[in-house]
Amino acid sequence: MHYTFDIERGNFADAGQASSSVKRALKHLGVDPVSIKRTVVALFEAEINAIAHAYGGRIDVDIDDGKIVMVVADQGPGIPNIDLAMQEGWSTASPQVREMGYGAGMGLPNIKKNTDELKIETEVGVGTTVTMTVYLA
């Protein structure tokens, strides 16, 4: 099963809609609650990251019997130093993002915690593609 969603820069009003749709689909498919939780938390964090930092992008989610693969690809500033970005508490989020309750520098570490595989491809000035995989029990 394949789902696609667009990401619009700074559109916090709609933030979470993609993750919400995926959550409903996984529930409908009878996926176990722990895998659903891990999947939607990782996707939600990635969605928020892209809305907060990028100029636009796309989310692709593939669900099959054994795994869920989520690809969040954005056009944006890229991540100059991935090691720093993976550190808990390190953030470049704007005050606006922080007012929304995000931007605490927990996003990427939390994505790593909730996925079985995480791949981050990034180019400064071009964009970032985050590929997250959750294996189903």
Binding site: A13, G16, S20, P33, K37, V41, F44, M100, G101
Partner: peptide, 15 residues
């Protein structure tokens, strides 16, 4: 004390 849609979306993801 955070009172916005993101409080609801986060709550949704956190069950």
């Amino acid at each position: 004390g955070l009172c916005n849609n993101q409080t609801m979306r986060t709550s949704e993801m956190s069950d």
